[in-house]
Amino acid sequence: MKLIDCPYIGARPQSEFVYGHEVREMPKPSEATDKEWADYVFSRASAPGVKKEWWHHVPSGIWFVFERDTLTDKFIRLVDIAEVQYEL
């Protein structure tokens, strides 16, 4: 069983988490062109690399952002939520 090490809740089995995909910034709906919006909805920069991703720990109900290498499946660090915040 693969464990995800988290400073807040300790090392927990990965099966307790739900994958929430990469953290992406939403363009302003009122300002985005149709093309930009379609890109946001569907397109992904999905080449392998280190990515910031949402992971939901179901038993505690907490959403975390982890940095993970999508080539090796190594969890690198827990990301401070302030790093990924942006103005809506």
Partner: peptide, 13 residues
């Protein structure tokens, strides 16, 4: 598998 991964590793899970 539930998460994005560019690897052909297999798992016990």
């Amino acid at each position: 598998d539930p998460q994005e991964l560019h690897s052909t590793r297999s798992s016990f899970d």
